[in-house]
Write a protein that binds this DNA or RNA. Structure first.
Lengths: 199, 199
DNA sequence: ACTGTATAAGAACGATCATTCTATAACTGA
DNA sequence: TCAGTTATAGAATGATCGTTCTTATACAGT
């Protein structure tokens, strides 16, 4: 009946993000969020307006707290093919800690569940794809300028787009398999293909 | 009040499959299914037992009617890299007819929405991945035996696994973008990488 | 110490969910 | 022609959904 008055409000978004990430939008109820966050029902509506707006806020938080640090690996000064490999292992290591089937990528999950039906989510998802594309393109350009392959800017651009698309499959896959070596195999093959293309 | 008594029961599964495919499991209600199929509420429970079982039946139908014909492209007698390209364009052409954002692949959608939480769905999804892997491996093996690259069986096997994983990303992507050329670009890049690896 | 604000707990609401049941009528086989 | 079967339309049910509202209380500012 009273109120413990701890700083639970601060944990609202991170905890809600985890639930939406693992279970998706429709399978996560307000009750689930209340139980997991120790925040009152009303607080959710006072702070966000509703479930849909809260989901958007969680997606934004994911982009800032989870996706951005990973993309930063690709944006580091002398990033090349090694940085691309590092980007993938960054996520795979997360799934090694979590166990499989894992949560995958919140953005990739939203891409299939919500993006076709909600403009705001599709916009956020596509904005992330654009960021990721630019980061891949930077790393590929560095790798290209160091190689003898003489790949055109158009080819590098398409390769970056390919990496954006292809990597979504890895995160989908992480939600259905139980063997982490299947994820590692993906990266080995991808790097083999890239090295073959850049030499 | 009466009963038109047409052969609507036959269209139950195909129509239900379309709804689950486009909107996913949780966003499709029994009411939606009843309206779209002109089948009585009770009929669904008499024939399948419930929503979850019906979803499984729809997924099986998709594997038979949609996935299997596509995989057959890869399993044709002299399938090589061209057949792999044909497999991808088979799905892309479907999205060209449908328009974007499109439905993607029912199996890929289920992989992210349901597979982590339902064993039966995860089993079906993984069985499809196994079929697809075998088909890719066959086509890659044919291509390998015709090339000078001398790729090992282990490398071909890993490449096939890569194609299975990577292709899931294309179907996710088809649900969030509005420009079909982004999907075509993926295939161009992938084929460029494969040709570079096999020469 | 008092007042006002913010937030907790949780009851209440109408809508919708999956599921079951009932009553009616079209078909089947005799 | 007349059961018996089968599938219909749709009401009914209880659970759960997202959302709102009420009440009590912990805190900040004075």
């Amino acid at each position: 009946m009273p109120r413990p008055r701890l700083e639970s409000r601060e944990k609202l978004l991170p905890n809600a993000m985890m639930l939406f990430w693992k279970n998706g939008y429709h399978a996560t109820s307000i009750d689930d969020l209340v139980k997991a966050t120790a925040v009152a029902r009303g607080g959710i509506y006072a702070d966000f307006g509703g479930k849909a707006e809260m989901f958007e806020a969680c997606l934004d938080l994911y982009r800032q707290e989870v996706a951005a640090p990973a993309i930063a690996i690709l944006n580091s000064e002398h990033a090349g093919l090694d940085a691309i490999e590092g980007y993938f292992y960054h996520f795979i290591d997360m799934h090694r800690r979590h166990g499989l089937p894992g949560p995958g990528c919140f953005i990739a999950n939203s891409m299939t569940e919500i993006a076709p039906h909600e403009d705001a989510i599709r916009t956020a998802v596509n904005a992330h794809s654009k960021d990721l594309h630019a980061a891949f393109l930077g790393a590929l350009s560095h790798a290209g300028s160091r190689s003898n392959a003489n790949l055109s800017q158009a080819t590098l651009n398409e390769l970056a787009l390919f990496l954006v698309t292809s990597s979504q499959g890895l995160w989908s896959y992480a939600r259905s398999v139980t063997d982490i070596s299947l994820l590692e195999s993906y990266v080995r093959s991808l790097m083999g293909l890239l090295h073959s293309r850049f030499s």
